[in-house]
Amino acid sequence: MELNVFLPPQALKSGAKVPVFTRLTHRVGGLQIEGEDEAYDFGSGAGFYVDATKEPWTKGYNMYSYITKELPEALFSSFKELDSDRVSITGHSMGGHGALTLFLKNPGKYKSVSAFAPIANPINCPWGQKAFKGYFGEDQQQKWKEHDATELVKQWKGPLEILIDVGTGDNFYKQKQLLPENFVEAAKAAGNDKGINLRMQPDYDHSYYFMATFADDHVAWAAKHLGA
């Protein structure tokens, strides 16, 4: 996997540990599995942050373990400047799905979470259904729910604060691939919606220009929760 790490100057000069802000994207490193490069929404184009249980995807398609276990161990052992007790997470599109599910599946691991145009209810959208059938199998509905933010938020205990931005001009939003309202409604039904800030941004699409426009807000959101 390709990885970029930015260390601010103060971390290199002072020796003080700095908090970590992780941004998730959607691609998986190619593993030469037949068919993995055929679609943008499956295989190397979209690993969905799960540990696959269906062959042949078990051979390396373990993004959940990679992000929650392997990568932190490698980072914190290699960069002593990083504070392993202060980590926040964000992501865009499928990376937004990953950010939400990783946060909700691991209470206390991340200080905060935010997302740009996340796939918030994958078991009820074509993208998610295709991915989960491929990685888990069609008969593994419970496994599907374990990686769906809308299902996970129903089980959350205690206060919950999340920042989500979605553009109203996003074609994938219009095609019912993202379904952020389902996430908010599930949180509301469970009494966990008070701290969820879903911002529908007029006319913005799914592009990185959308992310760039509101990136400062997400950095500030993380900084507040990280005590930075």
Rank of each mutant, 00 (worst) to 15 (best):
A223V: 07
L12H: 08
V28S: 01
G169R: 10
F42D: 03
Y204P: 00
A212K: 15
T168V: 12
Q155L: 15
T101N: 03
P126Y: 08
N124P: 00
K69G: 06
K176H: 14
S84P: 11
G98R: 00
P56N: 06
L104G: 00
V18S: 08
H97C: 03
F76D: 01
I164D: 10
V166T: 08
E55H: 09
A215D: 13
F76H: 08
I89T: 07
K174C: 05
V219D: 09
G158D: 09
P159F: 10
Y208A: 10
F116S: 03
R23W: 14
P202C: 09
K194S: 15
F79D: 01
A115K: 00
A189W: 03
T68E: 09
R23I: 13
F79W: 10
L160F: 11
S14I: 07
G43N: 01
N106A: 07
L179D: 00
N4T: 13
G91W: 04
T150D: 08
L31D: 02
Y64G: 00
E34W: 06
M211H: 09
T58D: 06
Y66F: 14
D203W: 11
N192L: 04
Y209L: 15
F172Y: 15
N62S: 09
Y208P: 04
F76N: 04
F103I: 03
Q142A: 15
N62T: 09
G47T: 02
T53P: 04
K54F: 09
P19D: 08
G195V: 02
K59S: 07
Q10L: 13
F172Q: 14
G29S: 07
T25E: 11
D216I: 12
A39S: 13
N62L: 07
D205C: 11
M94N: 06
S44D: 02
L75T: 02
M211Y: 13
P8A: 12
Y61V: 02
V219K: 08
N182F: 09
L75S: 02
T58F: 02
A74R: 11
Y40M: 11
D216K: 15
G96V: 02
E146M: 12
V166Q: 11
W221S: 09
Y110F: 15
G96I: 03
I67R: 00
P126G: 07
K54A: 09
A222T: 10
V219I: 15
A117F: 00
E146C: 08
K143Y: 07
G47P: 03
L104R: 00
N106D: 04
S207T: 14
F136M: 05
E55G: 05
K111H: 06
G191A: 02
K145Q: 14
V20A: 09
T53R: 09
Q129F: 05
P118Q: 03
L104K: 04
M211R: 14
A189H: 04
L179R: 12
L24I: 12
K133H: 12
P202I: 10
I33W: 05
D83T: 10
S14Q: 10
S78E: 12
S78L: 11
S77N: 12
A11D: 12
D83F: 10
F42G: 05
A228M: 13
D193V: 03
M94L: 10
D85W: 04
